[in-house]
């Protein structure tokens, strides 16, 4: 399977996870979307040397992964696979900021390393939170939530169309790339000239497809408005879910759990 195939497989897999049957899957998508955003904002609101205080936040992804029955290894692997930019920018921290900020025994720990680790920790937390949202909810239902939360319909509709045709178009692109690579014996990546003609053809086909879809829509009475029936209500579960987590986030934000526990432990040893 080449790159393209793998990527669309990934999307399909997350959507399969979203078809799961846990209590979390059945929550209204709005509750999950809002909680996820609150989580991310809380995590990134810490200062750059925050390390220990961030750790208790793992309770959120861990709890959701466990209760939702999601494959933890897969999600973590996905999160780690995509962090080159964060590492690239973060890696300069240890080089620039060499000030020792605390000691463990005789070893001085420079601030740069602390902030670098902090960046990585934030990265894992925020990225897994987003992945969990999709795998518990499914993209279409996230869009539903967006619509209900007041995002303009023109935008959400095209988001749905876009998502629908990702699968069709990546498939088409993959077939074209495969057809090319089967005839190009030595070159693994294609030259610019090849790419342009490939992309050009794909674009032409895409435009034709858009026309055919429009035709199919007209045949079924399309008048410029997309109508979708949805019956979803905010029930008790949603309120409990969102408010409980918000409470936890606030608590963890302003109360350094790690430090308190550490103090107790250290106290025991002294």
């Amino acid at each position: 399977m080449n790159n393209i195939g793998k990527n669309s497989f990934d999307i399909g897999y997350l959507d399969t996870l979203a078809a799961g049957d846990s209590s979390l899957h059945h929550l209204d998508p709005r509750a999950k979307l809002i909680t996820t955003c609150a989580f991310i904002i809380t995590v990134v609101s810490f200062d750059k040397y925050a390390l220990a205080v961030l750790i208790p936040f793992f309770i959120y992804p861990v709890a959701l992964i466990s209760i939702g029955g999601l494959p933890a290894e897969y999600l973590l692997k996905k999160a780690f696979l995509v962090c080159p930019f964060a590492v690239l920018v973060g890696i300069f921290n240890p080089l620039v900021d060499r000030e020792i900020i605390f000691h463990i025994g005789a070893i001085g720990i420079p601030g740069g390393w602390v902030s670098f680790l902090s960046i990585l920790l934030r990265f894992v937390l925020t990225v897994t939170a987003a992945l969990i949202l999709v795998s518990l909810t499914g993209f279409n239902r996230v869009c539903e939530a967006l619509l209900q939360l007041g995002v303009p319909k023109a935008f959400v509709v095209q988001l749905l169309f876009f998502y629908r045709y990702i699968f069709v178009l990546t498939d088409e692109a993959e077939r074209m790339v495969r057809a090319r690579s089967l005839r190009a014996f030595n070159a693994s990546a294609m030259g610019l000239r090849n790419f342009i003609s490939l992309a050009g053809h794909l674009l032409l086909r895409t435009l034709d497809r858009a026309e055919r879809i429009y035709r199919a829509m007209c045949c079924r009475g399309f008048d410029g408005h997309i109508r979708i029936i949805r019956s979803s209500k905010i029930r008790c579960q949603e309120v409990v879910f969102a408010s409980a987590w918000l409470f936890v986030f606030v608590l963890l934000r302003f109360f350094n759990v790690s430090l308190k526990i550490g103090d107790v432990i250290m106290g025991l040893f002294q």
Binding site: I4, N7, F162, E172, F195, A199, A210, M217
Partner: peptide, 22 residues
């Protein structure tokens, strides 16, 4: 016409971004 066109073109860009060239 733009309603389907926008979505499908988005999918095109998405797919095209995955094709690497030298």
């Amino acid at each position: 016409r733009k309603v389907p066109l926008m979505g499908v073109l988005g999918a095109f860009i998405f797919a095209a971004q995955m094709i690497n060239f030298t």
